[in-house]
Write a protein that binds this DNA or RNA. Structure first.
Length: 499
RNA sequence: GGGCCCGUAGCUCAGCUCGGUAGAGCAUCUGGCUUUUAACCAGGUGGUCGUGGGUUCGAUUCCCACUGGGCCCGCCA
């Protein structure tokens, strides 16, 4: 056996379940030798592809009798004497190829003899139908494009073990093509959000992921150490808000960033420690502007992608026809349980925490109000719903509600019971901002680990004068779940973190 | 962090209740077959039964701990 491909050697990096997902197959190594002996390179440089499987199938009437060349992985082989059916899978789907030995030259015959399921093959041939009516490529020439050393999972059940699917996403993708479709839809959505913001004149920017002072959200950060700067303590960003606002202050007017944010907290079906959102800031606008924008953005995406405004999510029909519902949740909570969370004191919060059995670690008004929403109102947000106006104390970076100083101008957009966007009429008064930071600092000292630290530099920037601005964070992960009918965020993250 | 379930061949799974040194299908290998599509027929290879400890003459099976994963609950998007 070739030493380079000693299986222990080649696979020791994987310790999954005390083993590995497949072994190196010695027979395949022999095939490689056989091909090379005959002067055929099993790992060539390129191949001219003219068609994909789906194209051929979708346009069979025009394609019949024409020569095509396509490439992909052999997923199944059915050999019967001098004829072999090979199902070739490319990015678009699968198509059957029909190989008759007596129609092949020596070279192709040799490739065929040394092919197995899992190999990447190039197929040149004529579009036709088999006797049973299956659209096929009648093969004239078969080319080895990449010889596999490992065995594919079985063709019936494929790879279903969730852990194996995430750890070996490459195998998941080849065995479960709908996974590729999921990530195509995610990609389309991200593209659509970018297009929307570009069309408004937004400038896409990049701001630091490694930050001296984190902020812009309530969350526990990841800490890092920068050794060449004297072991300086730095943080992975929990949000890019404070940097984007500095750009607004500088006069950029409309800026956005596709932002990977990091929050040092537990993962579950709707949370991943590393997640993607787009934050967008628009000068001279307020949060009303963004309600309209979200209605347009989501409805046009759904219509363009699915050809309808109504999609199924977990058995329920979600209708993206604008305008979306608006839920004045503080008012509704007052009606349901008599508590006005906008005026809730620390003592009241603690009492409600006990009475409602919320069992919060920090039973302060912020966490109690948040958890009351989850308990009583979240279940009503299957349809796209703007959750309107939050208690001012929940929004340290937001302007107060016109006509009601107890509330702040903020909405969260929920769809399928998931928060997918969060938007504000941004606070621009530097003196009020300073006070809000001081309050946060007090919470922090009281033990709220999630309260962000005081950011003097940011206040300094705001003291130059920040124009009226609307801000929004648009989740990419959760809408991707919605559009692909997934219940776990890991299904829309290509490589979710594993222990 | 709490509760429940799971880890046996490369993959998908039986076996465990009631302890006696491991089984199927697919994959792979050999042979047969020139229109199959879960092709078929015959034969073969393949397992430190997640890890460690305990009980026992004997443990994949019973007990404990650990580890990895899934689902539900609590918390941040």
């Amino acid at each position: 056996m070739n030493e380079v491909y000693d299986s222990d050697n080649a696979t020791h990096i994987n310790s999954y379940r005390g083993g590995i997902i497949s072994t190196i197959d010695e027979a395949k190594l022999e095939s490689i030798n056989a091909l090379r002996m005959a002067g055929i390179e099993p790992y060539p440089y390129s191949y001219a592809v003219t068609h994909h499987a789906k194209e051929i199938k979708d346009n069979f009437d025009e394609m019949e009798g024409k020569e095509v060349s396509m490439a992909g992985r052999a997923m199944q082989m059915r050999q019967m004497g001098g004829i072999t059916f090979i199902d070739i899978q490319d990015r678009s789907g699968k198509i059957q190829s029909l190989v008759r030995n007596n129609e092949l030259d020596q070279k192709s015959l040799l490739v065929l003899a040394n092919s197995s399921i899992g190999d990447t093959l190039g197929i040149r041939g004529i579009v036709m139908k088999s006797k049973r009516g299956e659209i096929s490529v009648g093969v004239r020439e078969i080319t080895m494009l990449s010889k596999t050393l490992r065995t594919l999972p079985n063709k019936w059940q494929g790879l279903t073990d969730t852990e194996a699917r995430y750890r070996y996403r490459h195998v998941d993708l080849m065995m479960n093509q709908e996974v590729l479709r999921t990530f195509e839809i995610r990609s389309k959505f991200l593209r659509h959000v970018r297009d929307t913001l570009d069309s408004r004149g937004g400038i896409e920017v990049e701001t630091p992921i490694l930050q001296d002072v984190y902020g812009g959200a309530k969350a526990k950060p990841f800490k890092t150490t920068y050794h060449t700067l004297d072991d300086k303590q730095m943080f992975l960003r929990i949000s890019d808000e404070l940097y984007l606002k500095r750009l607004i202050i500088g006069g950029a007017e409309r800026v956005y960033e596709v932002s990977k944010d990091f929050r040092n907290e537990d993962a579950d079906t709707t949370h991943n420690p590393e997640f993607t959102q787009i934050e967008y800031y628009e000068a001279y606008s307020d949060y009303e502007t963004f309600m309209k924008m979200m209605e347009d953005m989501l409805s046009s995406f759904v219509l363009k992608t699915f050809g309808t405004l109504k999609i199924k999510y977990q058995g329920e029909t979600v209708d993206f026809t604008p305008p979306f519902a608006r839920m004045y949740w503080v008012e509704q909570l007052k009606n349901i349980m008599g508590t006005d969370v906008s005026t809730m004191s620390d003592e009241e919060a603690e009492k409600i925490n006990k009475a409602e059995k919320l069992e919060l670690k920090h039973p302060d008004p912020y966490h109690v109000a948040d958890s009351l929403f989850d308990k009583y109102l979240k279940s009503k947000t299957v349809q796209p719903t703007f959750i309107m106006d939050f208690p001012a104390y929940m929004c340290p970076l937001t302007k107060i509600k016109r006509g009601n100083p107890l509330l702040a101008e903020r909405f969260e957009l929920y769809v399928g019971k998931m928060e997918v966007a969060n938007s504000y009429s941004e606070l621009t008064d530097p003196m009020y901002q300073r006070k809000m930071f001081e309050d946060q600092e007090t919470e922090r000292k009281k033990g709220d680990e999630e309260a962000p630290p005081f950011d003097e530099e940011f206040i300094g920037a705001m003291e130059y004068g920040m124009p009226p601005t609307a801000g929004i964070g648009i989740s990419i992960d959760r809408p991707s779940m919605l559009f692909t009918d997934q219940t776990s965020i890991k299904e829309v993250i290509l490589f979710p973190p594993m222990k």
